[in-house]
């Protein structure tokens, strides 16, 4: 029994190590000169250099990619919030006979293979003269953000105690001010989690961005993947630095998202 627990703990510790070590190693490599990366025996002791990071930050393509990513994802998430949250509230609080169908429709958007959406959209944006623009990317991403925010916000609004809202109605609040002043603030914690999740989803998106951009509207994931297409010609340290840059924004949401997970499951318990 004791031995079993010990093995269990060892397996867990190994899994925890595996979860972060590859990423830490990449971060370490981004601080190395090429000679310290291309070694048969991995080097832990080396003279660190900031050359890779400053190269990445100094490159126009990377900065443009960063800018495009921030704008495209930021605006798409904003649209998702504006259109998704009210709709989710209405579905959660004013259920009618279509509520189930609406929820299923929103979920089913996730079944659509990205290629199936990206190919026709590419043709459409080309014909409209909007191919390779941020506007095209934002509109396309809005489909993702609206549906994901709506899907996650419906249970969040349902978890708000009905009594609170009913008390507000008794106090003479109208339907809209109950949404603004009661439901939104009370559900805020879960809603922020849902919004953060949608941001991470579009920030990480690759295929649609790849197909809808050729030069001007490239997002950071596309720029990073292009660096690697040059193979070994690009010093590995630079590639590692670009991976680190690309990974940082989603990781900023680690706290918010794990809090979101906790609140989702605490609701289920009660």
């Amino acid at each position: 029994m004791k031995l079993g627990r010990l093995i269990g703990k060892a397996v867990l510790a190994f899994a925890g190590f595996m979860a972060v070590f590859p990423l830490l190693w990449t971060a370490l490599n981004s601080l190395k000169n090429n000679v310290d990366i291309i070694t048969r025996v991995p080097r832990v002791v080396f003279t660190p250099t900031l050359a890779n990071i400053s190269y990445i930050i100094g490159r126009d393509s990377v900065m443009t990619g960063l800018y495009n990513s921030v704008i495209a994802c930021g605006v798409a998430v904003l649209i998702g919030v504006v259109l998704g949250l009210p709709a989710a509230y209405a579905v959660a609080r004013y259920p009618n006979r279509w509520a189930g169908d609406i929820q299923f429709f929103v979920l089913s958007l996730r079944f659509l293979p990205p290629v199936a959406v990206a190919i026709p959209l590419m043709v459409i944006w080309l014909q409209l003269g909007l191919y390779d623009t941020l506007a095209a990317l934002i509109v396309t991403y809005s489909l993702l953000t609206i549906s994901v925010i709506m899907w996650l916000a419906i249970p969040a609004f349902q978890a708000v105690p009905k009594e609170v809202e009913e008390a507000a109605f008794v106090d003479g609040y109208g339907a809209y001010s109950v949404f603004w002043r009661i439901a939104l603030p009370v559900a805020a914690r879960s809603l922020i989690g849902a919004v953060a999740f949608s941001f991470v989803l579009v920030w990480n998106e690759f295929l649609i961005a790849l197909m809808l951009s050729s030069s001007n509207a490239k997002t950071l994931p596309i720029v990073a993947s292009e660096l690697s297409q040059q193979g070994m010609n690009v010093p590995w340290g630079i590639l590692n630095a670009s991976v680190v840059l690309l990974s940082l924004p989603p990781l900023l949401f680690l706290g918010v998202l794990s809090g979101f997970l906790n609140s989702v499951f605490r609701q289920k318990k009660t």
Binding site: V20, P22, T26, N204, A224, V243, L246, P250, L254
Partner: peptide, 17 residues
């Protein structure tokens, strides 16, 4: 906390790593 980190990474990042 540790186990959530990999899924937050962009797939492109995870693939490179």
């Amino acid at each position: 906390l540790l186990f959530i980190i990999p899924v937050l990474l962009p797939r492109v990042s995870a693939a490179f790593v």
